[in-house]
Design a protein around this nucleic acid. Structure first.
Lengths: 195, 195
DNA sequence: CAAAATATAGACAGATCTGTCTATTTTCTT
DNA sequence: AAGAAAATAGACAGATCTGTCTATATTTTG
């Protein structure tokens, strides 16, 4: 009724475009998927895209930021579902990884792939992708603190390395074994950090 | 004199082309660097390229395989230079990482970036890149065995995750700190594995 | 219902891409 | 010095790319 009553869903077309973009970019790659392919798949006119985004790069950044929010929400939910034991909560991250690795359309990490497709560290897409990894690291630091690690930031840094390494390995091998390797290593590091 | 006397250096032009390709691909990316750009930079005719390689993809695979050999040689040398202590030899890998991260033109790992630019796991470029990571893992397993790890393959797997995670982090942050994080974690895991 | 905002199809520009072909020149080998 | 092999420049095809523009149609809003 009054202005600013309905944020509306931002725009159905915009959302649909971003969903299709996310799916195609993840399946085939950011650079290889062209605007025309995306528009045909989404069934949306070209000018609609360019009315919502000034460029393909801006669309990619928007997709990455949306995915960042979604992944963080899912990860936080997985941690919550693990109960109250700080150790279990921390290790739940690695169980969550395994489930992800075993999912049908798993093709690595969209953020890591974005970092690599846009290797210039000052590129907005590169930065947006890394921002997600930093956010996850903040969560890990919190979990490490709650688990009583003597130097939580240090433990979280190591866990981040294990996680990203495990994602890479799972992508290349098609196996989810790296989740167990990472979990086992994380468990050792956690014990060592809480002595 | 007799046939097969001189493998020749395979071909000076071919080598020069591959060197230029490696440099440009690493600097800017495999997909973004076009054949024409590469040829202009190398000062080589297009038909020379297509006489040595059937396609751009084949050139990329050749570049990756050459880089694989070079990196493995450098890594082995770094290990040898670390002396005879098995622990020192294993941890030398992480010191070598730090030097690499701090080098002027460091832009992440060409193999990881190739994996991400060609995300389809059956793509020849993806496979060639992963082959390198497997070869490094073999070296790590050997070092873990010599260091007396009870389950060397398990330790090597964890070290591989730390290494690849550290490379990603160094690329995105521009800092070599992740080498120290990975080294510290590796040290803990090694001690735990040799109790 | 009328006005304003949004979406449409599709042509278009201009650049780029990989790979092929040809005709000429340079380099190597004997 | 002569013949074979390798490299050259550059045109060319045909496809693709991002982004712009226009004129029409649809949807939303007051």
């Amino acid at each position: 009724m009054s202005p600013a009553a309905a944020p509306e869903a931002v725009s159905a077309k915009r959302t649909h475009l971003m969903n299709t973009a996310q799916r195609l970019f993840y399946r085939d790659g950011f650079r290889i998927v062209g605007i025309d392919t995306l528009l045909a798949e989404a069934g949306v006119a070209k000018m609609t895209l360019y009315n919502h985004f000034t460029s393909k790069d801006e669309l990619i950044v928007a997709v990455i930021e949306k995915l960042d929010a979604d992944v963080r929400t899912a990860l936080a939910a997985a941690v919550e579902a693990a109960g109250r034991s700080p150790t279990r909560r921390l290790l739940a991250v690695f169980d969550w990884l395994k489930v992800w690795f075993d999912s049908a359309d798993f093709k690595g990490c969209a953020f890591i792939r974005a970092l690599s497709e846009y290797p210039d560290p000052v590129h907005p897409i590169h930065r947006a992708a890394w921002h997600h990894k930093e956010a996850v690291n903040v969560l890990l630091t919190k979990l490490a603190t709650e688990a009583g690690a003597s130097r939580p930031a240090e433990l979280a840094a190591a866990l981040s390395l294990l996680i990203n390494g495990a994602i890479l390995s799972a992508h290349a091998t098609g196996s989810s074994d790296s989740a167990a390797s990472a979990r086992a290593a994380a468990s050792v590091l956690l014990k060592q950090a809480t002595i």
